[in-house]
Amino acid sequence: MINSGNTGRYSEYDSVNQNYYTVEGKNFTDVALGFGLGAKWVQKRGFVFEINAGIGRNLFNSNSPEVVGRGGITLGYRF
């Protein structure tokens, strides 16, 4: 899975100067390798329902989160 995002903005406390400062987030793009599971149901009338989930580990970028997840629900009609 290819994923991208921003690490977010947060505040840190500087004990030497005794004040807070803001750390800006960094953008990242990475590739994750992992596994996923899912199921699909098809009715005789042609309606389709699918649900899936997966988890992966990012491989290359040090700014990206170590583990990423994905999931989905699909509703449709098969003709």
Score class of each variant (00 low, 15 high):
I2L: 14
I2M: 12
I2N: 14
G5M: 07
T7I: 07
G8D: 03
E12N: 04
E12K: 13
E12H: 06
E12W: 05
Y13V: 02
Y13E: 04
S15A: 15
N19F: 07
Y20F: 13
T22Q: 12
T22H: 11
T22E: 13
V23R: 11
E24H: 13
E24P: 00
E24I: 05
G25Q: 12
T29S: 15
D30W: 08
D30S: 03
D30N: 10
A32E: 15
A32W: 15
A32M: 14
L33C: 05
L33I: 14
G34V: 09
F35E: 04
G36F: 02
L37Q: 02
L37C: 04
G38H: 02
W41N: 04
V42G: 08
V42C: 07
Q43I: 03
Q43T: 11
R45D: 12
G46D: 02
E50Y: 01
I51H: 06
N52P: 00
A53N: 07
A53G: 11
G54N: 08
G54H: 09
G54C: 08
I55N: 05
G56K: 08
G56E: 05
G56T: 09
R57S: 13
N58S: 10
N61Y: 01
N61M: 00
S64W: 01
S64G: 02
S64V: 03
P65Q: 01
E66C: 02
V68F: 02
G71N: 01
G71W: 01
G72C: 08
I73Y: 06
T74I: 08
R78C: 00
